[in-house]
Structures are given as C-alpha cells and as structure tokens.
Design a protein around this nucleic acid. Structure first.
Length: 451
RNA sequence: GCCUCUAUCGUCUAAUGGUUAGGACGCCAGGUUCUCAUCCUGGUAAUCCGGGUUCGAUUCCCGGUGGAGGUGCCA
C-alpha cells in the first residue's frame, strides 16, 4: 500500500458517540495507519438543530480519548453546500437526475405535503455489483432499486449526494462504515459514476449487538464512549476489545499493543456477521491493562481519584508508592478507586455490616482483638515479617477444642477490624502499611463491635 | 412481504476438502495462601438443519431455518 490511501470517519454530531459508531472510526484509523495513509474526519452537520458546538466537541473528545488522531483539518459538511448543489446541477444537465413533484406523508404528524424534488435516476435493467472488502461480492438487480430524492422540496441536499460529493472532494479511496449503509452503497456507486468520479472501495462492518442479539443500546449498559470513560475503563483496553469484535489477527494473540494492532490489521480478516458485546470480557481486558500500567501512571490515576473523593493525597501510615502495587493488582476499573483502599487514607473505618457479622460477631473475638492489640503494641518492631511470625505462633497454639487455633481464626477478625472489609492486600503487608499505632487503635475500637 | 448479507463452545474467535476442531472470556474443580485479586494445573462446552458434489464436507454448492441490516423529502 502507499500514501494514496485516504479514509474518513464521518459522524453526524447528534449528542454522544455510540460504541458501534466509534468502532467504525477505530477500523478506519487502523486501516489508514496500517497502510501509511490518511485518516480524515468529516463532521456531517447538516442537521442544524442537533449539530451544536457541544455535540461536535463530544465527538472530538471521544476521538482524542481513544487516541484516534486524524490527519488534515476537520471538514464540516455544511461548508460544502455549494459543491453539493453544483453536483446536482451537473446531474440534472446530463439527465442523471430529474425534477418531479412528489407527495409525501410526514411520519410524525401524518400530514401530507407535496413539492418539487430532484430525483437520481437508477438503472432500469442489468445489475449493480461491487466487491465489498468485508462482505465479498455484492450484487443487486436494477429492478430492485428505485430512483431516490437527492434534493428536498425545500432545496436542501440529501445525505446521499452530500456524502458522495464530499468523498470525491476529499479524495477518499476506501469507505469503511457500518453495515447499515450496505443498501446505500448501490445508490452511491451510481452517483460516483454519474459524476465521473472513480468509485472507492467499500468495506461494511457488522453491527454490534447485545446479549440477546439485538442492536446494542443504552439499555444494555454503557453505550456511549463517554460512559466507558466515566465507568473507569482505559481507552487502550476499550480500543483493544473493540478491535477484537469482528476481527482477529489469525494467531492466538488477544492483548495487543496499539502498534501490534496496526501492524496486524487487515480488512479481509473482518467477520461479516454481527458480534455480541461481552461486557465481562471487556472488564477482564480492562483489568489486564490496569495491571500492566506503569506504577507511576497508576499512581497518577489514584491520586486524581483521591482528590476527587476528598481524601488526602497520601496514605496515613506509609507512602503512596508503597500502597500502589497491592492496590493496582486488585483494580478492575478505575471506578474501584479509591473505594477499595480508602481505609488507608482516613482514620474512620467504614465497616461493612456483612463483614462485621461474619467475622466479628463470634464468641471470643472481642478478647482476641484486644489481646492482639496489646501484643502488637508491645512488639519490638512492627514489620510484616514480625507480625506474621507472631500470628503464626499464636495460630499453632492448641485451642480449647484440643486442635491448633489456625491462621484463619486469627487473621479474618483482625483484617475486618483494621480495614472494615473481608478482602484486600495480604494482612501482614496491610498491617505494616497501616502502621502500628493505627492498627492498635483500630483493634481496640473494633472490639466494641465484636462479641 | 421484498431486497442485501450472515451462521464454529454461553460469548469473542482460529483452522482445514482428511486435526484429538485450537485460543480467549465466563463458569467449575484443584494447587498456592490469611481474604480478595494475581499466579499455576485441570475440566466443561461448538461446526444450525436437510440435500448435493467428493473416497472423504465443519470447509464447496443448493434449499430450509435462525439472526442482522435495508426497504424516508433521516443519516
């Protein structure tokens, strides 16, 4: 391939960027970068009511967040209005299009209206064919097509003509878009030809569907790019996951860097059937990406979320650096932060009622907690190794039932007493990170919750 | 209805005219361990149905069925 490849993403800015939509952008971007070509962005803002500055910014934000950088200036379709109408005049003059009075019914009001429109003439015999880079050879009999409106009775150009004229103007060589445009392709090919322009290559990507196989919508969970960001997904994870929906490299690789994806990508490996969006796999992939983040990067994320939650920038008993490794490995989405480690940052522990019930409301726990408080207070040094050795020794002592007490019997109540929850970093690591005074204090105060 | 596509474990997918049909997620079990997470081991589970071509079909062809898209003076 060469630098002659030019592809585009052409969203209409209607509010938020749907996940199925952004995937078209992802595949266009990948195709362009793989080929060393250009990835263009065109905003189809002909719907003046919905195309606000905010809506356009949302599109641009989503693109930037996912790292879909575009080449050349953003093109706004409304700026090409004169070209659209000029193209229509040419089609009219060659007879490829004609004017006619057409009656229509407003789907909303049921009102009938009629006016003069411009229709594009479709062939009356033979067939229209093209080779889709994803779906293979496509064909449509002329008798199954109909002339269609390209200029409304109010004089405004319709999508079909605007889209094609813009693609010609931008020199687009490959049109990669959603499956929902397959039928339009038979129309657009005829317009390209009628305008004397080369017909670009087409690739139609299958739609993303939900667990029921229906079109993926907001009811199925996060549906817009912004929501994935809010829910703590990493852009690289979403990107990787999206690429794997309908495409595979052909070997067993799944977690792939952006560079690897660019190198491996090709349209002919894309599937032609719809793919279901599997949120569980996305969650797994996000966890993979978080685990692989450099500690400094993860630390920055954590800091940001600590600040947002009104918590201090550093843990109470240790450095933030010391806390990062055990927290990072347990984080599946950034939204887990700082909730899953807040007891390191504030003195008041929020006790999970279920955890208290399970681990503290047991006979003997009250005494157990205060005896450990005393013992920890008296230890010559308070390190993970020291507390572990000590607890280990206690666990091997023979209890009233004549059997060793066991680690679990001791560890579980201590963990809940100092953290308020049943899961988290290894207990002895946790104790050291918390610091002796705080541990002792929490053991004493938690004994009031215990039986 | 008509038109354009499409069909491998529950999900995302790989592969091939001859394989024990592979991987990943999920799920289950075991190991490690103080929990959770990680990590390691093992397991579960698929070629939609019916014809045809062929020595042999999951693979090629036809039909059926299921699914998606389209069928606007929306994009």
């Amino acid at each position: 391939m060469s630098d002659t490849v030019r592809v585009r993403f052409a969203p209409s800015p209607t509010g938020s960027v749907h996940i199925g939509n952004i995937r078209a952008a992802v595949f266009n971007w990948l195709f362009a970068r793989h080929a060393g070509g250009k990835f263009l962005l065109r905003i189809e803002d002909t719907d003046l009511v919905r195309s606000t500055k905010e809506a356009i910014d949302k599109v641009l934000d989503a693109m930037r967040w996912l790292g879909l950088d575009w080449d050349e200036d953003v093109v706004y379709q409304t700026h090409n209005a004169a070209d659209h109408l000029a193209a229509v005049e040419r089609l009219l003059s060659t007879g490829a299009a004609y004017k006619a009075v057409k009656e229509s019914v407003d789907p909303a009001t049921g009102e009938r209206k009629s006016g003069e429109v411009v229709l594009f003439r479709m062939p009356k015999e033979g067939r229209i064919e093209y080779d889709d880079l994803v779906k293979g050879h496509m064909r449509k009999k002329a008798e199954d097509t109909q002339d269609f409106v390209i200029v409304r009775s109010d004089g405004s150009p319709v999508f079909h003509i605007a889209n094609v004229v813009d693609d010609i103007k931008q020199g687009v060589t490959h049109i990669i878009r959603g499956d929902d445009h397959v039928e339009n392709t038979f129309k657009h090919i005829q317009i390209f030809k009628a305008l004397g322009a080369p017909v670009p290559k087409y690739a139609h990507l299958p739609m993303i569907v939900n667990a029921q196989g229906k079109p993926y919508s907001k009811r199925d969970g996060a549906a817009f790019v912004g929501e994935f960001k809010e829910q703590g997904y990493l852009p690289e994870a979403l990107f990787n996951f999206l690429v794997l929906l309908g495409w595979a490299p052909g070997d067993d690789r799944e977690v792939m860097s952006r560079q690897e994806l660019v190198e491996a990508f090709s349209l002919d490996r894309c599937k032609a059937s719809p793919a279901r969006f599997d949120m569980k796999k996305l969650l797994w992939m996000n966890g993979e990406y978080i685990a692989r983040q450099p500690h400094e990067v993860f630390k920055a994320e954590l800091s940001e979320r600590l600040a947002a939650a009104g918590l201090p920038p550093a843990p109470l008993g240790c450095s933030l650096d010391a806390l990062v490794p055990p927290v990072q490995i347990r984080t599946k989405t950034l939204s887990d932060l700082p909730g899953n480690c807040e007891y390191f940052f504030k003195e008041d522990v929020s006790y999970d009622p279920a955890a208290v019930e399970k681990r503290l409301k047991k006979p003997g726990v009250k005494a157990l907690l205060s005896s450990f408080a005393d013992a920890f207070a008296a230890m010559p040094e308070f390190t993970a190794a020291a507390t572990e050795a000590f607890v280990h020794g206690e666990a091997e002592k023979i209890g009233e039932d004549g059997k060793p007490v066991g680690m679990g019997t001791l560890v579980h109540p201590i963990r809940v007493a100092v953290s308020g929850r049943t899961e988290g970093p290894g207990l002895f690591e946790m104790l050291e990170l918390l610091g002796r005074d705080r541990v002792v204090r929490r053991l004493r105060s938690a004994s009031s919750l215990a039986s």
